[in-house]
Design a protein around this nucleic acid. Structure first.
Lengths: 248, 248
DNA sequence: CGTCACTTTGAGGCTAGTCAACGGCGGTGG
DNA sequence: CCACCGCCGTTGACTAGCCTCAAAGTGACG
């Protein structure tokens, strides 16, 4: 297996109601969940290197919910440069930046073997009409992505962006004890954060020298130092470590 | 008047159904519009320098719809640095990045004398339950902002970002014949685009030397050269000038 | 007519990118 | 089983785009 760890463990036959995925839209309650669960029936498995799930310029047919693995969305400019716009982990939706306009602005491909649930747009619209709470949840998901995009897009230093990225991944992957395994290569991290691969590498090394992290390959452990948090704090996508904000 | 031109022209007593604003959510049709119109009843006028409409960390009470003027949203870090996350023009909504979480991530203040319509969240939720098309439209608005944030956040050169900004403003302001008046100072443009004020100035000068624009103060005219479009093209927030995409 | 905010211009420095080369690890094939 | 190959990560030297600092010019307003 070319991808060290997190082999996506398909969980193919599970029902969405029992979905193990932390943030899965379908979790929770009631009739909305049942309807959503039915809608998400069709699934697709994606391998790295395989044709993309979705290509920039395509008419958006469906929204996708990541069930396992990691999907990256990106654009490719005239010179062939890839520009990664986001990484989508289990529980995330793909296609939210295309709901206005109706055609996809980005291409979506698997970073590691992955599985997605497919929600055809027509069905989704019907579902929204019947169950406004679904729209509410999609609105929240889109809002969350917007907040992240605005935060990462800001004018921060390489160290700040990388620190925020690590903490954010820790949070999203639900890492226990600061132990986590990044699905993507440093090249992709750098591309996403507007950094050269070399800068990612050097900055990680720097963090390691400070004792803030230790890493081997794509597995890393955040040693709980406040350094990363202090660096990432102004970016504001990581939950505050409690307290700290008494004044305005 | 300290702000040369576009003095916001309050239009205070107009009904939202007759709203002159191009993209106003309330435009269009049916019962949804009527309900929305009623909801948007309360209005607020904002002057530059006045206390912000909304502050980072506040519990989000309402979503705001810009009716006239220009509102900027920004964060302020520990050192007091302002970081502008977006400019909101008539027809834009404010607060969309806070729908998840429920508290505002940014502060909103007027760039020029402005007017907003106030949509209390509780009312909005009720309205969405009754009229799913409102949720649909908000979803589209949020999606649009997401696409813009992702695009501007990418790793582009100063010239590319500024070119995209100018063309985008031309589009959003509905400028006729390439003539437009920017509401915000160069400092704010630079802050938004992660550029020093000096870089904005020099880049504008450069565009002018190339004959692509001419400007005096905040009024500028885009001379229709393809240069700006070519620069901005990879960023992808400006509509293509027709044709050009036969392949792929 | 002075003040203040904004813009413009210049000189120099730093962050991060580019270029180049090597090491490691896994997979593949002989 | 080992040699080869390709992707990824690492390291060093150099470069460049943009930022910082400094200062003067411009226009609006009191």
């Amino acid at each position: 297996m070319p991808y060290d760890a997190s082999p996506a463990r398909p969980t193919a036959t599970q029902d969405c109601l029992l979905c193990p995925v932390t943030n899965c839209l379908a979790r929770g309650h009631d009739a909305a969940t049942a309807a959503w669960s039915a809608l998400l029936g069709p699934r697709a498995t994606l391998m790295p290197g395989a044709p993309p799930l979705l290509s920039a310029g395509d008419r958006l047919q469906s929204v996708y919910s990541v069930r396992a693995g990691c999907i990256k969305t990106y654009t490719i400019d005239a010179e062939g440069n890839e520009r990664i716009r986001g990484f989508h982990l289990p529980g995330d939706l793909i296609g939210l930046d295309a709901l206005d306009g109706g055609y996809s602005r980005s291409t979506a491909a698997a970073v590691v073997p992955s599985q997605v649930c497919v929600a055809p747009l027509a069905d989704l619209r019907r579902l929204i009409a019947a169950e406004p709470s679904i729209a509410q949840r999609m609105l929240e998901a889109t809002s969350r992505e917007l907040a992240i995009a605005l935060a990462i897009g800001g004018g921060f230093t390489a160290e700040q962006r990388l620190a925020a990225f690590l903490l954010h991944m820790e949070q999203r992957l639900g890492a226990r004890g600061g132990l986590l395994h990044l699905p993507m290569p440093q090249r992709d991290i750098g591309n996403y954060l507007r950094l050269a691969t070399e800068t990612v590498c050097r900055t990680l090394k720097h963090f390691a020298e400070l004792g803030w992290i230790s890493h081997k390959g794509r597995s890393l452990s955040l040693n709980g130092h406040h350094g990363l948090q202090e660096l990432a704090e102004p970016i504001g996508i990581v939950r505050r470590p409690v307290a700290l904000r008494l004044a305005a």
